[in-house]
């Protein structure tokens, strides 16, 4: 009996842990996204994803949209006519980085 509730405890704990963990993984961490963005994305897309010159605006977009775009580029597939540049940039992104970037970009705003 005791033995059983211990297993039950482990089981519940694991589920709770998995849910909590996957929530982080799926939801992304905006702070981490901001740091990753600052590494090189801003050189083309500008501060806070505002879009510069012929580099598209990427802030204020839905999370699934950004995730889908980044995964498409990462797989080497073209979207627009300047995809080659973006494919190079996306090649090294991990799933976690993509989730973090999407979370950050959703509410990123350029202020001057």
């Amino acid at each position: 009996m005791r033995h059983f509730s211990f297993l039950k405890f482990i089981y519940c704990f694991s589920i709770a842990f998995l849910i909590a963990f996957s929530k982080i993984a799926l939801g992304g961490d905006a702070e981490a996204g901001k740091i990753r963005y600052a590494q090189n994305c801003g050189n083309c897309h500008g501060p806070a994803g505002m879009g510069l010159a012929s580099y598209p605006k990427i802030s204020g977009k839905e999370i699934p949209y950004i995730i889908e775009r980044l995964k498409t580029y990462r797989s080497g597939k073209k979207i627009g006519s300047n995809s080659a540049l973006m494919i190079m940039m996306a090649k090294t992104l991990t799933d976690e980085e993509i989730a973090n970037l999407a979370e950050y970009l959703k509410d990123a705003k350029y202020e001057n």
Binding site: S54, G80, S81, N82, A84, L85, M88
Partner: peptide, 8 residues
């Protein structure tokens, strides 16, 4: 077919 191959 260029890395920054868009029109313009």
């Amino acid at each position: 077919n260029q890395p920054f191959g868009g029109p313009g």
